[in-house]
Design a protein around this nucleic acid. Structure first.
Length: 268
DNA sequence: ACTCGTGTTAGCTG
DNA sequence: TCAGCTAACACGAG
């Protein structure tokens, strides 16, 4: 699920985990917590607290303090493809949404991949069936490009148009621009009427500006409606194979190594 | 039964 | 150096 809009909601959940004393950490999943060894994260943070929750693109991290009040290591959290954060208070009440349709597939404790237990009895959990999420100390935030919400038109043109890759591949490259995932990329290109496979350096200035405006509007819509799956094309994708705007057939293929939909008439 | 996928990253190849 | 591919993770949906 998570692209930028969903991750921002997860960050809001994470705020509920701040300023609470950390009593215990389960970091025994050595895939999710790689390259650390089990116990590394627990030893670094036990007795301390999380004090700030930040986000850049799809990456989140917390500033921490150790027991004596000095700065601790940053704790990086990435939700991967389907991870969710769940925070419970000292009363056991949870925030963070229901993990994965609890009615039909009851939550399995073994899908908690990382758990912080606070001294007040509450918890912060990373719930992630597929184990594609990641938790690590001192994540390299600077490897990411500017956040998709903050990038200026000039920055956008300069970064996206560099190189011969397909423009969709540039949008998806988190070191170019942070926060755009597969669905949001399709939605944005459709709104801008640009074919996903066009080499990035063949885009005109007009097209790049149009693409940037489309990114802003599709991001805004996704944040308002509660997720990228609410996009105009994305929501319709498989319905009847027709473009919701002009009715021409939607085409499907692989661009930048990812499943891609585009309008046969408008995105040429 | 079998393929595909809202993500990332190391490692390989041309 | 750049661009593109693969595997790894593990599960649900179609």
């Amino acid at each position: 699920m998570p692209e930028l809009p969903e991750v921002e909601r997860a960050r809001q959940v994470l705020l509920g985990a701040l300023d609470r004393e950390i009593a215990d950490i389960d970091d025994t999943d050595d895939w999710v917590c790689r390259p650390h060894r089990p116990g590394d994260i627990a030893n670094a943070l036990a007795g301390g607290r999380l004090v700030e929750a930040h986000r850049r693109g799809k990456a989140m991290w917390c500033e921490t303090e150790t027991a004596d009040g000095s700065a601790g290591p940053r704790l990086g959290i990435h939700l991967g493809m389907g991870g969710r954060l769940i925070v419970s208070g000292d009363d056991g009440e949870q925030a963070g949404g229901e993990p994965d349709r609890p009615d039909r597939s009851p939550r399995k404790p073994e899908w908690d991949r990382f758990t912080v237990t606070f001294a007040d009895g509450g918890q912060l959990r990373l719930f992630d069936k597929r184990r594609l999420g990641r938790v690590r100390l001192e994540p390299d935030i600077d490897a990411l490009g500017p956040d998709a919400e903050d990038i200026t038109p000039a920055q956008f043109r300069e970064r996206i148009a560099r190189g011969r890759s397909a423009v969709k591949a540039r949008l998806l490259d988190q070191s170019v621009l942070a926060g755009v995932g597969n669905l949001l990329a399709d939605e944005t290109l459709w709104q801008a009427r640009i074919r996903p496979s066009v080499p990035a350096d063949e885009l005109t200035r007009t097209e790049l500006d149009r693409l940037h405006r489309a990114l802003e509007s599709s991001l805004r819509a996704a944040i308002e409606k509660g997720g990228v799956h609410t996009g105009e094309v994305i929501g319709e994708r498989n319905a009847d194979g027709a473009c919701p705007r002009c009715g021409a057939p939607m085409l499907h293929g692989t661009v930048g190594g990812r499943s891609t939909w585009w309008c046969s008439a408008e995105q040429q």
